[in-house]
Nucleic acid binder design. Structure first.
Lengths: 260, 260
DNA sequence: CAATGTGTAAAGCTC
DNA sequence: GAGCTTTGCACATTG
């Protein structure tokens, strides 16, 4: 499945055409590039690396420098490889708007397609910003970030279902249970909050609101919250700041499985 | 100079270490990644492509989708390759701020370094913005958008200070220099126009007006124009129009209300 | 050096 | 879908 061509003939490179759109394709070599669309550009001969991703994304990088690509086409786009006058011509065209990049490879050092089976769906990147402790501090110091009139009462409150992150009262005196998540919350957060709310309802025999505090929630989580009559308060974590010398970041635990 | 390893053993990959920082290095395979710095993230196992550029730039791409990298380190950064428990560990560290990305390759499909001699310095990309061309066309075809009685005479006119976009005469026969900007104009536009105006004054020994033509100007630019006795004519670049038939996206130019 | 503005911004989220 | 905000924005320019 991994097909690699080293310093191939142009005609050999053309074989990779069939992988385009199905597998990742990489080309590296000396090339010139033209872009035409919202703006236009011409790039003189240089060593560059081209990537074609199965979703249609096309990226052309200067091989020597810069984080930003020389040229690109975001998905949805389509690529093709032709051979013309002994040159490998990689053409990429956006499907939604008229924009095109054409790359003329005078010389190809590397041309390859990668196997796609390796690509698991569980590719998601989880961002963990500050600690949950920081979220608590923010709410403690400025309770209105939850809602106007919110009064926090205690933290780490035990109940039948476990330990609630924070509890308090709303403007109208109703009891509120907060569940804090510093990263995107999954269904597990919703069901955990539900358990706490029910426990407090039993315990206190009064109306209890449950609010999930998180920067974002998954779709499933959102639906579950709705089903249970719970609420979500979006709270953006503050960016890390390093004060006082260099700060050591410990990359901690992976997020617990929000499997279902 | 081109060294390519296909489905290599971890120890083989380690040989590429010496190319890091000197030649472009590409690694592709199944990996997990951790990032820690301004924020933190963990990325689960997936097929990804890593690029290390000689300037220190490090980019890790999901091989299947997205224009934006999963993780990255802009220059100045430094990378290293180790082998640990049979895993290829690619580590990248920014040199200016404490930020690090660590990539654990469980499996490597491709590992290569590219020759750097191919990389000519003449890599520059030239951008030609359609909308500025459009602005010129609009003024050419309908000079009164500048002001009633304006008569354009020539475009791309050389003078001591450079090349003026457009020159002409006003109703009263006064010489006018136009500086066109397709987007919000900053102070540089104002001082550039000023240089042209002064050059033409010297050259022609007559009164010369300078008009900055742009959809909007920054506050600082506006103050500078005032100080130099220059003028600003608001002109919106026209949306791109399509040549084929169906209508096309317009370049979203969000101009603030330019309140005063 | 920091502050500011630009980008073929891209990408995510709200409506 | 359009519109708005965010980005580990990156990057250039300006003060």
């Amino acid at each position: 499945m991994t097909k690699v061509l080293v310093e191939p003939d142009p005609e050999e490179v053309k074989q990779l055409s069939e992988a385009l759109g199905r597998q990742p394709v990489i080309l590296a070599g000396i090339c010139e590039a033209e872009y035409c669309g919202r703006a236009e550009s011409v790039a003189g001969p240089a060593l560059r690396i081209a990537m074609c991703k199965p979703d249609g994304t096309f990226i052309l990088h200067n091989a020597m420098e810069k984080r930003e690509p020389t040229n690109w086409n975001p998905a949805p786009s389509r690529q093709s490889i032709e051979v013309r006058d002994g040159c490998v011509v990689l053409r990429s065209r956006r499907l939604d708007v008229p924009e095109e990049v054409v790359v003329y490879f005078h010389r190809v050092f590397l041309a390859c397609s990668l196997p796609k089976e390796g690509a698991k769906s569980e590719d998601s990147v989880f961002y963990l910003f500050k600690s949950e402790e920081d979220m608590k501090r923010v709410i403690r110091e400025n309770p209105s970030v939850i809602e106007p009139g919110f009064r926090p009462v205690s933290e780490e409150v035990e109940c039948e279902a476990g330990v609630a992150d924070m509890v308090g009262y709303d403007e109208k005196g109703r009891f509120i249970v907060l569940e804090l998540k510093r990263a995107r919350a999954g269904v597990s957060a919703a069901s955990q909050l539900r358990r706490y709310v029910e426990a407090f309802r039993e315990e206190r025999c009064e109306e209890v609101r449950g609010i999930l505090v998180a920067p974002s929630v998954t779709d499933k989580c959102r639906r579950l919250l709705e089903k249970y009559g719970l609420e979500w308060k979006k709270l953006e974590p503050e960016p890390l700041r390093e004060d006082g010398g260099k700060k050591q970041c410990t990359l901690t635990e992976f997020l617990d499985g929000e499997g279902d």
